[in-house]
Design a protein around this nucleic acid. Sequence first.
DNA 1: TTGAAAGCGTTACCAT
DNA 2: ATGGTAACGCTTTCAA
Lengths: 363, 363
Amino acid sequence: MSKDTSGTTRGRSGIKAVAELAGVGIASVSRVLSGQRGSSPQLTKRVLDAARQLGYAPNALAQGLRRRTTRSIGFVGSDITNPLIASIVSGAESVLSLAGFSVLLTNSGGIPSVDAERIEVLLQRQVDGLIVLPALEDDPGTLAALRNTQTPIVLIDRTLPADIRAQYVLSDHYRGVGDASRYLLAAGHRHIGLVVGRDVRPTRERVRAVEDAYDGSGIARDLLVHRGTLSPEHGEEALEEMLSGAVPPSAVILGGNQLLEGALRVVHRRGLQLGKDLSLVCCDDVPLGRFHQPPIATVMRDSALLGKRAAELLLAQPETPGTNEPVYLPTWFEPRASCGPRATDTSDTRRKRTARKVSVTQG
Amino acid sequence: MSKDTSGTTRGRSGIKAVAELAGVGIASVSRVLSGQRGSSPQLTKRVLDAARQLGYAPNALAQGLRRRTTRSIGFVGSDITNPLIASIVSGAESVLSLAGFSVLLTNSGGIPSVDAERIEVLLQRQVDGLIVLPALEDDPGTLAALRNTQTPIVLIDRTLPADIRAQYVLSDHYRGVGDASRYLLAAGHRHIGLVVGRDVRPTRERVRAVEDAYDGSGIARDLLVHRGTLSPEHGEEALEEMLSGAVPPSAVILGGNQLLEGALRVVHRRGLQLGKDLSLVCCDDVPLGRFHQPPIATVMRDSALLGKRAAELLLAQPETPGTNEPVYLPTWFEPRASCGPRATDTSDTRRKRTARKVSVTQG
DNA sequence: TTGAAAGCGTTACCAT
DNA sequence: ATGGTAACGCTTTCAA
């Protein structure tokens, strides 16, 4: 059982054991190991040797308790399974781990009360910072949890009431969706469908972008907005409902990549040909989106960059207390074959050219 | 600045403050708040009130230091951006957070030395358990890091030397890939290409599965194995190379979902029609795989379940010390239109029916 | 039932 | 340059 051939007897040894083995004081061990200068070469060597021999590694809990900093940050998102979120986490983690920070990951499943609870758990764990993508921007519980701390907070793609002390990393959804809308309008589409999620910043920006695109083109607003959750199921339901309506849109913008799968189910079931029978734009890339037949036009963004910037904001915090300007990150429209000119088919006569404005359907 | 309208002055208050405000001893506060019975109703009420009034939340660091358990587990994987890994993490997180555990997430980028380093960091942070998907099964550093601890460890889809004290959650790749192979052989394919990653358990099982499928069907082994990393780039390179070879396979199995994107680039570039010019099988689902034209035949598995089982093993650890049987989880082949019968085209005459056995190309 | 005090493994102050 | 010691915030004997 106990073959101690190796001279290295690793195990649960504390700083005390190192001090004893090295024949020095506990404080000296601490000093040497935390890389502070002010120790003689001999002492340093003795300590280092002893530490190595014991396989000593400091207890981060004790360090954190004493130093009042844990070099860890918490991430609160809805669902790591969403490639967009995964990418954000990945971007943040790469920056943070390089700086010696660890990431505490939490999924809330998009449930506001869980958001709040997880934020509280992470704060109890004394994280040095929080990156949050809350499900809602006005959930009392979530806001209370965020208000209840001095810990630096970075929000991604959300804007919270001004009394919340936080920094923001925001995507310029307005631009990408605006470009997509103008592209569609230029292609002759006059009735655009927009599927969005809950009332958070990206949703508002996207709606505004399409509306402004209509206005800017001097075309009467004829926008069909469908609100729900950003799930494949909602994507399916929303598109089905839109296409079954009295005046189906000839082009649809999906405000979230998770919607695409559901939407494609409808497209395939109905045997629609994208870019011809229906033009489709998706917000945020989906792995095989560009290999779909036809490729799916997409409002792109560098999602890993969102996470990186958020992490950088957190890391810079101590030095830069004042800079509260939100960080804006670009989006851009990549037209692909899923978008085509509006079919000038006979059924067009069916359309009532009433002065419909913006109609909203709850999903 | 300091509007103290609310009676609740939340903040950094410790257990001491609660004790003072309640006019009781520190120990009593601890007892009440950790839900131990043995306190009078009056005491309990006083404590609870004081705690609420101060917005007190215990410091998990101090608790962990004292209790010698942190209710946190570490996850070490290559890349959360891979939907497979994301799904595993998500499965684990759902089980763990329900049990009050937090997850420390780490990405190693598939670099063995980083695996080792991250394991060590997590151990320093005193995690109560580790879920690991190391890049290699025999990296000395990684093995040393794992050996150097009493902390419970669960490995996913990897088998390590017997001297490593760990539990295993393994997918039955043999079955799924075997079924896929038999399907292809039955469809007339005689020369199958297999793209795999590094020499880890899934790779070995997949190779073995195809070989055994040949043998079991009484067909001479004519397998072309391409080894590399499981990246889109390698997928592209591998397929390109295989198809450019003297005797290109008529069917290819991709041993990893990340390969598909690259492979599809080749397919589209060459204008190949899947299921006709080339049959393609992918291991592990890719979001839009079934919506590709034609849909991609896939060796499926419940990847979230891998994470869940791993988490459950960790949570059960204290009670079940002995049970060291690996947990086996199924995979299954879902044939889709990307697989078709072997084309009996003229170029068939070109094939030299030499007694080639298993040829291996390094990627 | 309650509370004082020791101790978890560090760090940082303050002498020496 | 070095080491003793008091905290850090909590849990857990142990006495009362």
